[in-house]
């Protein structure tokens, strides 16, 4: 009896899963434009670039990325650092050792940033 009950449960679950997939397929077919847009956004969100902070340096100091890229700063140093835009459009709090800060760059332009704790540490991001 147990086996049979279990099988029927599986059948029920399978039905729900297939139903869900069918619904998704229907939606995708009905709304192709929205679906394509969502895919583009998803692809852009997946684009990341990483800047390492070590020995009081941003590496690489100059980075060029496509618009929509998320830049991640990882502090590998044994001192805390900050990431601050020269023009004040973004700033992290202090990043302790192994902390990260990330920011998505949607708008093309040149962004000069520095560590506001150790201001001689500078870097530039070019967004195209």
């Amino acid at each position: 009896m147990r086996t049979i009950r279990s099988l029927s449960e599986w059948r029920l679950r399978l039905g729900l899963i297939l139903g869900g997939l069918g619904m998704a397929a229907l939606l995708a077919a009905a709304l192709p434009a929205i679906d394509a847009g969502a895919a583009a956004v998803a692809a852009a969100a997946a684009r990341t670039a990483t800047i390492q902070i070590d020995n009081f340096r941003f590496t690489p100091p100059d980075l060029t990325v496509a618009a929509g890229t998320t830049v991640i700063w990882k502090n590998r140093d044994d001192s805390p650092h900050r990431v601050a835009d020269k023009n004040g459009t973004f700033a992290s709090a202090a990043l302790d050792t192994d902390d990260s800060y990330s920011r998505s760059f949607a708008t093309p332009g040149i962004y000069h940033y520095f560590c506001s704790i150790h201001p001689y540490m500078v870097g530039t991001i070019v967004v195209k």
């Binding site: 000069h112 520095f114 201001p119």
Partner: peptide, 10 residues
């Protein structure tokens, strides 16, 4: 702090 782009970052 002055960002050290053109100056020393003092």
């Amino acid at each position: 702090f002055q960002p050290g782009f053109k100056s020393a970052g003092l």
